[in-house]
Amino acid sequence: MTLTTRRSVTKAAPARHRPRRKDRAVEALWGYAFIAPVGLGLAVFYLWPVLQTAYFSFTEWGAFGGHTWTGLENYLRLAVDPEMGRALVNTLTYTVLGLLAIPLAIVFAALLNTKGLRGVGVYRTMFFLPVVTMPVAIAMVWRWLYNGDYGLINQVLSLVGIDGPNWIADPATALPALVVVGIWSSVGYNLIIFLAGMQAIPKEYYEAAAIDGAGPVRQFFKVTLPLLSPTAFFVSVVSVIGSLQLFDLVYVMSGSGSSARSNPAFPRLETVVQLFYERAFVTNDRGYAAAIVMALLMLIIALTAFQFRLQRRWVHYG
């Protein structure tokens, strides 16, 4: 950011004012002064805890503080913990399936972007509503929708003679059911971003394409999609990170708190952050919990770096 601004400043006004070395130092100082409040907040509330957590992941940390250095023991335990493996598989499956929200959001955004469509604001609000709703409230409502005996979904299915399952208590359906809620609650956010991305595409491209004889479908694939790829890249990075940190939705939907474990589908629902929560705050195994989140942090960094590498293949910047 700072690089580009500086370059554009010097480019724009080279003749009028040649900044001296001292001026630039003062300017930089002001810059740091302005970001200091945010930087300080980040350092105190994010960076410091992360460093502390990293340290604690090499210790055995009691319920009330007081820790002893155990070296790599937590990580060795983590490597062979079947529960961690299971939670990792669930989390990654959820993340991959959750990516379906992106094409879905693009389609909806394209529909909303149709010229002359009436009531765009109403649709936009409708799609965006789940985003501003508390995840816990969403989870509670969906829990009832999915209820095997009294849920709305199974009531509707019974009208056509289908005996629906206990959606979130059945190991076969629990994770897909969770993914549906995840997509439903995130599609609105993605849609707004894609809509903005589409509206930023210059009209001239479409006019040129139309003159060349491209119909609406061809225009969508040849103009809209490629020019939307930077937006799609941003959305996919953000949603992968979000999915990997999934907690509140599954915490409430699987049976709220300690009873979640008695859900027969729990082995298919448990996420990495949920396991972290239980180790840190329920079973008082905090050093181990710290190792779990450090592993998750590494995974997030690795997957994000991987996405940045991959983007060269498919992202077009105008």
């Binding site: 105190v44 509330f45 994010y46 410091w48 805890p49 502390q52 957590t53 503080g65 959750g98 508390m134 995840p135 995840g182 609650s185 995130s186 956010y189 953000v238 949603s239 990170i241 979000g242 999915s243 940190q245 999934l246 907690f247 509140d248 939705l249 952050v273 929560y277 840190a280 989140v293």
Partner: peptide, 20 residues
């Protein structure tokens, strides 16, 4: 999902902050 990420971080952060 995004909120959950922040919530998790916030809970952990608050706990650490309280202890600090």
């Amino acid at each position: 999902m995004r909120k959950s990420a922040r919530l998790g971080a916030a809970v952990f952060g608050v706990v650490l902050a309280v202890s600090a």
